[in-house]
Design a protein around this nucleic acid. Sequence first.
DNA 1: CCAACGATTAACT
DNA 2: GTTAATCGTTGGT
Length: 215
Amino acid sequence: MTIEGFTAASREFFTRDALELAPDLLGCHLAHTTDDGTVGLIITEMEAYTGERDPGSHAFRGKTARNSTMFGEAGHLYAYFTYGMHYAINVVAGEVGHPYGCLVRAGRVIEGADLARRRRTKPARVSALPDRDLARGPGNLAQALGANLGNDGDDLIGGRWQLLVPDVKPADISTGPRVGVSGPGGDGDTFPWRYWITGDPTVSAYKPGAVRVRS
DNA sequence: CCAACGATTAACT
DNA sequence: GTTAATCGTTGGT
């Protein structure tokens, strides 16, 4: 399926430093097809993880069974499990051997919203679930897309995943410190390696941090 | 082998 | 704003 105003991503698009790729993934259309159907969304929030030089990265202490996908070819999916109950997905960036990852933190569902909602309300929910919350936060986004550990290593090119790059980039992008991560300074300093589309209601609400705008 | 903790979420005060 | 829920991965014993 193609969408007006978007072009399928090439391998070269992914084969860059995470700090370049993460903001460029904002505004992209990410879709996943399973036997249950397709859910597609516009990415509204990203974070960059720069491998062995980044204390916040799963790859900071080198290659392990869990993070090995990040050391492989760019454009694949690094999926992991955390907090005993949530999955999250990263887009692998950089050359082979460089464990760069871009965490997809939030998106606006524009295709298969009914399927996404079914997945997100599987265990009965007490409160109502607004459309804007369907893929708000890394764990929620993974669940809406039907992603789990079985998707670790999936290729975003040519499989059941599809990543389309917008012909026109989002006009207004904000940056700030990543969520729940300390920076290379080690003192709790954080680097502005979180990116989001300014003012978008689907962006997760945690610790806004110092906001800067770059056009 | 075992204990600690996390790139979180949802509900509650 | 605070906190319980929940378990795989990691790193130290």
